[in-house]
Nucleic acid binder design. Structure first.
Lengths: 238, 238
DNA sequence: TTGCTATCTTACCTATGGGTAAGATATCGT
DNA sequence: ACGATATCTTACCCATAGGTAAGATAGCAA
């Protein structure tokens, strides 16, 4: 029932010779991302990537200067996805707690998409100093936003007093770790994970009184971008 | 003021030739663990390890059959540490929530020790299928225990109803991620992290009414093994 | 002093995999 | 039909790093 489990579905972007290079670049990145997640960057050879695309290694060098550029391409695509969802949140809803809940829900979803997983799962040590700086800058940006939401919530009273730095580490950790155990064909759907995480984690931040229905209510906002996020295929709209 | 930052403090276990092999094996593992965390297993060469110990590569083969055995040694030491702290918890205290809090506190501390960090930070893909099975079995064991504590808490009413599987993933994720950002010379001390995490995360599980002083109170139990856990030197008592 | 043995070194082998050079071929415009 | 050009392949180079062989040396026993 789920598509493309056994069949490599090797994006036959390389079937015909004349075809826009953009879609071939894309095919390389998707294939590489999948392999990087399966076997890690270090153990994935360019021959592996080429094989899945039914071409030979040197063909890849028409679209990327070297292996690291492919890796960086995956990182960039992933951070692009994160950026998108963060921007969505920035505007709507009011209280800090609600923003944190929205952040968690949205971010958790990204962590179930291959490119999103790459950002947090792959080893930064494989990047050159230049690429590393770029990725690090991005991660800092995400972290700052989350801390800001938490601080906001503490100020407006929706979040109990705590150290925003450590609280952000706890939340981000729980979310980032998703990309380590999530598998597309697994029992848990992205939305299940996302909503449960939002509930469990914000519950820890919610101010004492009442049960923690607050955190859960904030989720309804993101249900718009739901559609069928069950598969990691189209989510890479970039 | 903190010892051994710049000075390699390369455990001079290899200074004299006649010296118990056990301490040399240990020195190799400690050096390797540090390097694995600095540069990853794949990028750490046996020459690197040998250099820090002031010996040459072939000398290492007197204590380990191959590179993977060194890796496995790090994993085993780390899982040993986790086992220890889990056993401590198993006995004492009563309510499920308190056990979870104790688990978090204890586990967070282990994640700041080099060997503990290795268990969750290093790439399982570098293990042989045999080694992988061993490590996986251990991780499953940890996961089962945590889920059990959560289930226990739901039964005794100390934890709000939730999916134990996902809740465990959230908690374990936050904890496991510590080994990705923690640095011994950093601003946050292990106890700070551990206690804050216990508070923040259990708050999310605590049943509605009252503020969440419950989770924090459960911590006092583990303060016994405090001493000066600020440095990762002696903590490897195994 | 004279071996004896565990320990360690120098020198080497070899597989792997990123990257390149140079030539083949498909597809297009004309 | 016929080049022109981007695209792709075959064949190769070579640096890296795990692992080994064989010989040196330190420390002990006698």
């Amino acid at each position: 029932m789920p598509r493309g489990a056994a069949v490599p579905q090797h994006w036959k972007a390389f079937a015909s010779r004349r075809r826009d290079p953009a879609s071939k670049r894309e095919a390389v990145l998707k294939t590489a991302a999948q392999l990087f997640l399966e076997k890690s960057y270090g153990r994935t050879t360019l021959d592996d990537v080429a094989e899945r695309l039914n071409v030979t290694k040197p063909a890849l060098y028409h679209y990327f200067h070297n292996k690291e550029e492919i890796l960086l391409g995956c990182y960039r695509w992933g951070t692009g996805l994160i950026e998108e969802s963060l921007n969505e949140i920035a505007g709507h809803c009011g209280a800090g707690l609600e923003k944190v809940a929205a952040f968690i829900y949205s971010y958790a979803n990204v962590m179930t998409v291959n490119f999103g997983r790459c950002v947090m799962r792959l080893d930064e040590g494989d990047l050159s100093s230049k690429g590393l700086a770029e990725v690090r800058a991005y991660k800092r940006k995400i972290d700052r936003r989350l801390r800001l939401f938490i601080q906001e919530g503490m100020d407006d009273g929706s979040i109990a007093p705590c150290d925003p730095k450590i609280a952000a580490f706890a939340i981000a950790g729980a979310l980032n770790w998703i990309c380590m155990w999530y598998e597309p064909e697994g029992a848990l759907s992205p939305e299940e994970i996302a909503s449960q995480f939002a509930e469990t984690l914000t519950g820890g931040l919610a101010a004492k009184k009442r049960d923690r229905s607050q955190g859960a209510s904030a989720l309804k906002l993101d249900s718009s971008s739901q559609g069928d996020p069950r598969r990691g295929g189209r989510a890479e709209t970039r």
